[in-house]
Design a binder for these strands. Structure first.
Length: 336
DNA sequence: ATGGATGATTGCTA
DNA sequence: TAGCAATCATCCAT
């Protein structure tokens, strides 16, 4: 160990090394008190310093010669040690930084939307939710559904191809830097640990690019969602059968067109829509009927006849004629 | 392209 | 909190 200390001191004394490499004041002091270093090391260092002034070919030859020198491994490790103590300890403070909460949120969202997960995972669930929220008929719903899915798949594809590109570029660049550093480590004090750190730095930089990609993908998905899931935007008329069922109920309960919660559930089930859609429908129907009874008269008569016929059929089939629901021709009575 | 129809939303009331 | 009234946003037949 004493040998090494002396060697270290001698290197510092040669003055050609960068400040970073010899900034340990302790070693400088030691050097001053230790006297003449072995000529051997002095020579080597002189040669190293001279390389910068030489032509490339000469330098290559000198590099090779230095590489084969018997003192090289020892010198190398000492220089690495110094470097480790000075520059790298400052630069590489934040080692294993904890997973960024921002990137975790993005990852979770992309997974939930089925962008980053397996092919037919969350995406279809989200689209199904969209269809359910829209409450349209199965036919209409599936049109929107497939449209949404197609757009989502497009985003997904772009995301994955970009991600792949980034990853490829990252590994290419990392390889390049690693090769470069390995090559340089033949003449410069670069420890494997330092190379490792450099790789980590590169990965961090690339992951920030990745985060940007994730962010913009999330944005695209949000826009898509708001476009497709906004109920007003994707409003679909109920299918004919559903409208018929609702109208039948409305006109056969014209004196009191306020279905109970149970009745609403029943109607919702029959029409394949939600209870709140049934409520909306009745709310709209009541107000619009009341506003212009004349306009709805024809429709009212139609459903009155329809209901009567149905009732007649039922009573004809039944052994006894129970009192059928008599169509009401009266006004809508406000429920108070 | 347009206007009426229609489902959804909002703000309010009792 | 359900329902009303007004309004919005979209659909759809013309």
């Amino acid at each position: 160990m004493d040998d090494q200390t002396r060697m270290l001191a001698s290197m510092a004394g040669l003055g050609g090394l960068s400040q970073a490499d010899v900034s340990d004041p302790d070693s400088v002091r030691k050097q001053q008190s230790l006297g003449q270093p072995p000529q051997d090391i002095g020579d080597i260092l002189q040669q190293i310093m001279a390389i910068t002034d030489e032509s490339l070919d000469e330098a290559q030859a000198r590099k090779h010669a230095l590489n084969c020198h018997r003192m090289k491994p020892a010198l190398f490790s000492v220089l690495c040690e110094i470097k480790e103590k000075t520059v790298l300890s400052i630069r590489g403070v934040q080692e294993e930084d904890p997973p960024d909460p921002q990137i975790m949120r993005l990852d979770n969202m992309l997974l939930a939307e089925g962008v980053s997960g397996p092919e037919k995972g969350g995406g279809s669930a989200a689209a199904a939710a969209a269809a359910a929220a829209a409450g349209g008929s199965p036919n209409d719903g599936s049109i929107e559904h497939s449209d949404y899915r197609a757009k989502l798949a497009q985003i997904r594809q772009i995301y994955h191809s970009e991600l792949e590109k980034y990853e490829q570029a990252c590994s290419e660049f990392t390889n390049h830097v690693m090769n470069l550093l390995r090559e340089q480590s033949r003449t410069r004090p670069i420890s494997p640990k330092e190379i490792e750190r450099m790789v980590a730095i590169i990965h961090r930089k690339f992951s920030s690019i990745q985060m940007q990609l994730k962010q913009s993908t999330c944005e695209a998905v949000m826009i898509l969602r708001s476009r497709f899931l906004d109920a007003r935007r994707k409003r679909r008329n109920f299918n004919k059968q559903a409208t018929e069922v609702l109208n039948e109920y409305f006109y056969s309960h014209l004196s009191n067109p306020y279905p109970s919660e149970e009745a609403k559930e029943e109607l919702a089930k029959k029409c394949a829509i939600t209870v709140s859609q049934v409520s909306n429908w009745f709310g709209n129907k009541r107000i619009r009927y009341k506003k212009n009874i004349g306009k709805f008269q024809e429709e009212a008569n139609l459903y009155a006849v329809k209901t009567a016929v149905d009732a007649a059929n039922v009573s004809a089939q039944a052994s006894q004629a129970n009192s059928p629901a008599t169509p009401n021709s009266g006004k809508v009575h406000r429920k108070t």
